[in-house]
Design a protein around this nucleic acid. Structure first.
Lengths: 193, 193
DNA sequence: ATATCGGAACGGCACGTGCCGTGTTGACAC
DNA sequence: GTGTCAACACGGCACGTGCCGTTCCGATAT
């Protein structure tokens, strides 16, 4: 057994997740069945059930296995520019095919299955939110933001409208829209007459 | 057939929707089956399928049949106070038992079923958004807001963070949090050092 | 007489769980 | 190194269950 190849078990796990994504893109998450994944992957159903407790858990892992591509924040010293860059990148990944529809379905599943919701939060939502908070906190510590700046609220105002449009209203997101949200957060809405 | 009672057909429709909500509260939307609704309502499955095309459609109608209680905006002339009042009321209804968990599940279903998503938008999300837009526009027309005030973006910043916390992060919402969002929108985040 | 109903039964699909025969793995003896 | 072997994970198959969406039938109301 050389170092060149992973163990058989790892190979199978990856093959199953790859097949899950492939089938998910073809027929959508809703119609996806574990039987179909097992059949196409050339794998017994047991092998899937041994590793994942539900279709949602399998799907979550499969999607997370993609995102090794980084959604980290740069730190050029300019908080606004860094936020723009990261949010644009995140949006391009999470709101567009091929990942977009799958991510949307995953959140739908999380709303119906608390276990999936917990796993999604632990392995993606919370870590991602903490990256945002950390970057904002760094900016505040560097004096770019007021000491009283509400980091948590800022996080919600950055993320909330995007999720709202993507998931609820289901209208397309654009970089320009992201920029408007960021501008509203940092320079304020043009509000008083 | 007197005027005092609705037609049999209407009676049955309402009985089915009532049973759907009742069962939904007991076992949750995910475990709800049309068979179970039919059995408890003392109704043939055909009678349900004749009226609704899917479990999601039935559930949507059932939930909407509740909300005749108004989520309309008052107009006291004070836009901030009116927004506070309406959003507090909406949140109390949509984010707390008994409706909260059901509404959350409905959105989950909408994310998995485009037909339900479209119906939810047409019959609830969009009308509600337009109420918000109308109230904001009235305030702008009355000179309480700048002519350049971005109504759509304001709507998203009012709704987005709330949906984000309720659905994604799944943390409890409070009136105080709503107030912070509104304050951030109208008086700005305490941002510049 | 006509339409609608409740109830029962149906074929179909996917679930999650057993069992079986087959390989692969890793420890140990020599 | 070579050979042996127990343990384990595997693919495949079949099973019982639950719910789907549909069809049929006898009863009932208009």
């Amino acid at each position: 057994m050389t170092d060149k190849r992973g163990s058989r078990a790892t190979d199978r796990t990856e093959a199953i997740m790859r097949t899950t994504l492939e089938l998910g893109k073809e027929i959508g998450y809703a119609k996806l069945s574990i039987e179909a994944v097992a059949a196409r992957a050339g794998v017994g159903k047991h092998t899937i059930y041994r590793r994942w407790s539900s279709k949602g858990a399998l799907f979550l892992d499969s999607l997370l296995s993609l995102n090794k591509s980084d959604l980290d924040y740069p730190d050029t010293g300019d908080i606004v520019a860094d936020l723009r860059r990261q949010i644009h990148a995140a949006m391009d990944l999470l709101d567009r095919p091929p990942v977009g529809p799958l991510y949307r379905a995953l959140i739908g599943e999380a709303l119906l299955n608390p276990q999936v919701a917990a796993a999604l939060n632990d392995h993606f939502i919370t870590p991602q939110a903490e990256k945002t908070l950390a970057r904002l906190k760094a900016a505040r510590d560097q004096g770019q933001l007021s000491p009283g700046f509400d980091l948590d609220l800022a996080m919600d105002i950055l993320s909330g409208p995007l999720y709202f449009r993507a998931l609820i209203v289901q209208e397309p997101l654009t970089h320009e829209y992201v920029d408007r949200v960021i501008e509203a957060l940092f320079t304020g809405m043009e509000c008083r007459p």
